[in-house]
Design a protein around this nucleic acid. Structure first.
Length: 878
RNA sequence: GGGCGCAUAGCUCAGCUGGUUUAGAGCACCUGCCUUACAAGCAGGGGGUCGGCGGUUCGAAUCCGUCUGCGCCCACCA
């Protein structure tokens, strides 16, 4: 076939992706083959493709394509996540830009806007994945908020509620005053933050609400919360403050009287040893308050502003209030000093707002039992983490996990299926009808309108933890005794999961829990953790830094295969990826190399009558063996999830071995034809190489494979079998390596002496050389003759292994220079020999080391002696 | 504060159970080549006291201790 001189990725990619789709090449149905399943880590439905997605999905696609070529029934299920907080934030922002405020809308109106947004932006990212070559089974595309999957989430809630593991309670939660919702502990990011440590005087009361002239000092970072103080607390062992027992103090500015109490929680040597206890605005203080029966006074509203109960600074934002109250305290003489202070502060993962500890009624899921089982699944080795170090991280979290706050004060998500009764009771059911029926059992006179459904929705992860189950059978979650559907029982457990370590707790751990609860089995066998994609300076990719390339632009510029290679080249499991466009260029160059290699081979004319020459015969034998060995190496790398090592093995095999050595050896002279045997072998090699490359570079391999011969419609390289390794003649390969070393040395001599590669040289070899490789040596090194004897006359010598070789060079040998070189080499060999002999003369080594190692050292000694003799002989000739 | 991990060539990383002659790769770099597949290429080349110190061992990049410097996870000492 006529091949264009340059590879045009975008044209080829469009053509073959359309072809794969048209022929449903990615679609999978259960059959009698072994399944290989991956569920995509569902990207946010309104998200757009970034470099992290490229890395993750490239790895997934490599795995799925490899499995497919191993004859497995490969199924990669795509889909998106409704991402409740992120999406709701986006919709709120978009509405705000149009002058619409969320609080002016009803829930139904808001959800209409949200769904409209989802319809408009949802799935863009899945379209983008196609550009990358992702071989997802698009017929199976799922969305976590589609009706069936939402039903699964609700059923799950009811299941755990019936089990008594879901409960509603007033707890101190992490309140996000921007998103206006509680969030789970995992969504809080602690960062050391510079602030101030305010030392405040609290005057001791005379018992009638009037200050005495005595005071104590507390240190706080949050002076704006003093109005909510319920007590001052000291350590009972702190003798400094025993005089305060039974006393009361007055809160500055508002002069409210509060008691002094004692609790072990207070550290004597931290701050002043006096702690102001503010139960409504600090989790520890809340605990103290419970122990001492203190009142809870909440003075901060949902948006982080002081409310009327604060008495002063009402309506002020908490940070403005902090500045203002500091001034007020100073004016009132209560501010003793202000220190610079750095302490960890919790921020919302989504909005970056400073978290406000807030007492509120939320739904929780009991975690202890689920966590214990999920820990066992990993500790027992039923699930394997790559790299292994994440087991430690996982164990630590599992052993310290707290109950999961699953309610969110949002609208975008699955609404909690709890209905409140007029008498304050609650019923939980999968539907409103069932809830009413349940309620009527308690009180037959109740009507539908008497029931009020909980306003909150469920945490997004409360739906994504079902993903590996619900994509195959949404009936299963919530109904562990349900008979799994055909797809679920065939595809579950999935095989491998590729994801980032940042969601090991959010998602990975919880999928393991849900898997155990509803399937009594693990959700996947292996979890491959990628790193974070950074720029080449090691900085995180971010919009503000502008250091994040648009993957689609890269694909447009370099081609999808090149982008995939660029990502894979620098990715080892668990390590951050330092992305550099140079790597994508390298990928593009590799495409060019493959393309041009086929241009060469496909342009050859075959002479049916020609005999196969000795050089070609030897080259074919060599590459056949090398290919076999490399197939084994690649398989081993893949088995250990060393994807970039597998790629590098293939890369070097194709470029260095196949192109630079094999093709150069067999390629016919200008205008000459090639013999049939060599041509067929070469095409066979090429075809095997393409199959080996296909999982990492699907497009160019399909293009060339399709062009190699007539293919039937629907036939694709992706259904070909991975080449299988034959027996490997190791001695032959190693003899060929020696030959290559000789050739490189001869070329080196040419380069040094400024001789043209076209100029034939005469070589002398002293030592053993494999006879059948002689023609190869002569061709590759462009030799006129090879003589197995010491050279007569001036020559440049070098040593390969234990073979000494000399290039005869009349008039070009500088005896002095040559002597210097040989002497340096000799010196080096003598030192080496001395080292080896020191070992061998050490009685402890000879008796202590394994026989094979001692034998190895003896061989080294003999080889060194041989080399020294050869070098000395050359020197004496000079 | 607790835990985990990392440190090998200019850069990114391999180096698996301690022993493969002088510790490897890719990229970058230097030199020479527009050789009829490919200059996005070809041929050749230079470059590392394996973070410091101490220990175990016949033998350490590899095992142990310690120090230094990074990274990550967990953690509400106000």
């Amino acid at each position: 076939m006529e091949q264009k001189s340059k590879y045009n990725p975008s044209e080829v990619e469009q053509k073959w992706y359309a072809y794969w789709l048209k022929n449903k090449c990615f679609h999978s149905e259960p059959d009698n083959r072994e399944p290989y399943t991956i569920v995509i880590p569902p990207p946010n439905v309104t998200g757009i493709l970034h470099m992290g997605h490229v890395l993750n999905n490239t790895l997934n696609d490599v795995l799925i394509r490899k499995a497919r070529m191993e004859g497995k029934n490969a199924c990669w299920v795509p889909g998106t996540d409704h991402a409740s907080i992120a999406t709701e934030n986006k919709v709120v922002a978009k509405l705000a830009a149009q002058g619409i405020r969320k609080e002016d809308l009803t829930r139904e109106e808001f959800l209409k806007h949200a769904w409209a947004w989802k319809e408009e932006h949802g799935g863009i990212i899945l379209e983008q994945l196609r550009k990358l070559g992702a071989s997802c089974d698009w017929d199976r595309t799922r969305f976590t908020m589609e009706p069936e999957l939402s039903k699964a989430v609700i059923a799950t809630f009811c299941h755990f509620y019936r089990k008594g593991w879901i409960y509603r309670g007033v707890r101190m939660v992490n309140w996000d005053p921007v998103a206006l919702t509680a969030i789970s502990d995992d969504e809080v990011i602690h960062r050391d933050t510079r602030s101030h440590f305010y030392h405040l005087k609290y005057y001791i009361s005379d018992g009638k609400g009037n200050p005495t002239d005595q005071y104590l000092v507390i240190a706080t970072t949050r002076p704006e919360t003093i109005m909510a103080d319920a007590a001052i607390c000291v350590n009972p062992a702190d003798e400094r403050y025993h005089c305060l027992r039974g006393k009361k103090v007055l809160i500055p500015l508002i002069n409210r009287e509060i008691p002094v109490i004692e609790d072990d929680y207070v550290e004597m040597d931290f701050g002043t040893g006096c702690l102001k206890v503010t139960p409504a605005h600090d989790a520890h203080d809340y605990e103290i308050g419970l122990r001492h029966n203190l009142p809870v006074l909440d003075i901060i509203d949902d948006r982080g502003r002081l409310n009327a109960d604060a008495q002063i600074l009402v309506g002020e934002d908490r940070f403005d209030a902090r500045k203002k109250i500091a001034k007020m305290l100073e004016d009132a003489g209560n501010l003793l000093k202000v220190e610079e202070y750095t302490s960890p502060v919790g921020y919302s993962e989504r909005t970056d707002a400073v978290i406000e500890p807030k007492l509120s009624a939320q739904w929780f899921l009991k975690m202890d039992d689920l966590a214990a089982r999920a820990l066992e699944a990993v500790e027992s080795g039923r699930i394997h983490f790559i790299p292994d170090k994440y087991r430690n991280v996982y164990r630590h979290w599992m052993e310290n996990v707290r109950d999961w706050c699953i309610s969110r004060q949002l609208w975008w998500g699955q609404r909690i299926p709890a209905w409140y009764l007029p008498d304050g009771g609650v019923v939980v059911a999968e539907t409103a009808e069932e809830a009413l029926a349940q309620a009527q059992q308690q009180n037959p006179s109740l009507k539908a309108e008497d029931l009020h459904q909980d306003e909150d929705v469920l945490d997004t992860w409360f739906s994504s933890w079902l993903w590996p189950i619900s994509v195959f059978d949404p009936e299963q979650p919530g109904h562990p005794e349900h008979k799994a559907g055909a797809d679920l029982s065939y595809y579950y457990p999935t095989s491998d999961l590729v994801t980032g370590p940042d969601i090991i707790f959010f998602w990975v751990a919880r999928m393991i829990m849900a898997g155990d609860e509803f399937m009594h089995d693990v959700p996947f066998r292996n979890v491959y953790f990628t790193g974070i994609v950074r720029d080449k300076l090691g900085r995180k990719m971010s919009k503000t830094l502008g250091n994040s390339p648009n993957p689609l632009d890269l694909i447009e510029k370099y081609g999808a295969d090149a982008v995939r290679i660029g990502m894979l080249l620098c990715s080892s499991a668990g390590n951050d990826i330092l992305y550099d466009e140079a790597q994508v260029e390298q990928g593009r160059n590799f495409c060019g190399k493959i393309w041009n290699a086929w241009r060469l081979v496909s342009g050859w004319n075959v002479d049916e009558k020609a005999e196969q020459g000795e050089v070609s015969r030897a080259a074919v034998k060599w590459f056949d063996n090398l290919l076999s060995r490399s197939i084994g190496t690649v398989a081993d790398h893949y088995a250990k999830f060393r994807i970039s090592d597998a790629l590098m093995t293939i890369y070097k095999l194709f470029w260095d071995d196949f192109c630079s050595w094999y093709l150069e050896l067999v390629k016919p002279g200008y205008g000459a034809a090639i013999d049939r045997a060599t041509f067929d072998a070469t095409v066979d090699f090429f075809s095997k190489l393409l199959k080996l490359i296909h999982p990492v570079m699907p497009f160019i391999t399909e293009e060339l494979w399709q062009g190699m011969e007539e293919r039937r419609d629907g036939e694709s390289i992706m259904f070909e079998r991975t080449p299988v390794a034959g027996p490997v003649d190791e001695p032959y390969l190693s003899a060929f390596d020696d030959l290559r070393a000789l050739v490189v040395n001869v070329r080196g001599v040419r380069a040094q002496k400024g001789l043209s590669p076209k100029e034939e040289l005469a070589l002398n070899i002293e030592g053993a050389f494999r006879e059948e490789l002689l023609p190869v040596l002569m061709r590759a090194a462009n030799l006129s003759s090879v003589e197995f004897a010491a050279p007569e006359g001036p020559a440049v010598s070098f040593i390969v292994g234990t073979v000494k070789a000399s290039v005869k060079l009349e008039g070009l040998v500088d005896a002095g220079e040559e002597r210097k070189k040989l002497e340096a080499d000799l010196e080096h060999q003598r030192r080496f020999l001395a080292g080896v002999r020191a070992k061998l003369s050490n009685e402890k080594f000879v008796s202590g080391a394994p026989a094979a190692v001692v034998e190895g050292e003896r061989k080294k000694e003999a080889d060194a002696l041989a080399r020294i003799a050869a070098l000395e002989a050359s020197l004496s000739k000079l």
